[in-house]
């Protein structure tokens, strides 16, 4: 079975380490915050200028001056700091964020990522995604393995305009966890009940399948 969005978030959360500063993108990455392991301390960065993002506010407590990068009302946790957009992207560009999780339309075997623009459709903008992929060393891309029409999103070469070149090393899809190295995807884990054959069939770019591909663990 393909992973649910919650399961994908749960699997990504296993990559967290105590003391990490983490930036979570919009969509599935946001859900990762719900699965940070008990007893582990992690600071979430929101690129509009907040380090130490807390839970959503209690009913009636929302403050228009307190939002995250998705423009949702949030709170700040103890130990948080708030700063300007230039300071925020100094942290990002300067490589100070330990883990970045973001979505994508396509990734390829060279570690390229396309996530912001589909030519012919309305272009809304890249927001902070280009800065995040250029600045972070440790990035996990979360996306579905194939489109609704069954087209693979793991390609030999991205077909859409890029968000960043050669910057992605790890991808979690609803079918598999893969790494990217030396011009190929390497299949590291498969979703429970998903066959290696299905993953091979739905991966357009070069895929290296080790002899043993373990089933994904969530806890």
């Amino acid at each position: 079975m393909a992973l649910t969005r919650e399961q994908m978030a749960q699997r990504v959360a296993r990559e967290m380490q105590d003391g990490f500063y983490v930036n979570l993108g919009i969509g599935i990455p946001t859900l990762v915050a719900n699965y940070i392991p008990e007893g582990m301390e992690v600071m979430l960065q929101s690129e509009n200028g907040l380090l130490g993002m807390g839970a959503f506010p209690q009913k009636g407590q929302a403050d228009a001056d307190m939002i995250n990068a998705g423009k949702q009302t949030v709170t700040a946790r103890t130990g948080a700091s708030i700063f300007s957009s230039a300071e925020s992207f100094a942290m990002i560009r300067g490589g100070h964020i330990d883990l970045t999780v973001l979505g994508a339309f396509e990734v390829d075997v060279q570690g390229n990522i396309a996530s912001w623009m589909i030519p012919g459709k309305m272009v809304k903008g890249m927001g902070g995604a280009m800065d995040l992929v250029a600045g972070a060393d440790n990035i996990i891309v979360t996306m579905t393995h194939a489109s609704k029409d069954g087209e693979s999103k793991l390609l030999s070469r991205c077909s859409l305009p890029l968000t960043g070149a050669g910057c992605i090393k790890r991808v979690l899809t609803d079918l598999a966890y893969l790494e990217i190295a030396d011009g190929a995807f390497i299949l590291k884990e498969r979703a429970p009940g998903v066959s290696v054959e299905e993953i091979v069939r739905k991966t357009a770019g070069k895929l290296i399948v080790p002899e043993h591909v373990p089933e994904m663990q969530f806890a």
Binding site: E47, S84, A86, F89, G128
Partner: peptide
Amino acid sequence: PQGTLAEKMRAGGAGIPAFFTATGV
């Protein structure tokens, strides 16, 4: 890009005409 936009303003106000960034390469 958002970080580039922020830096363009910061640099503009600080008398720096241009800067180099990996963002967007």
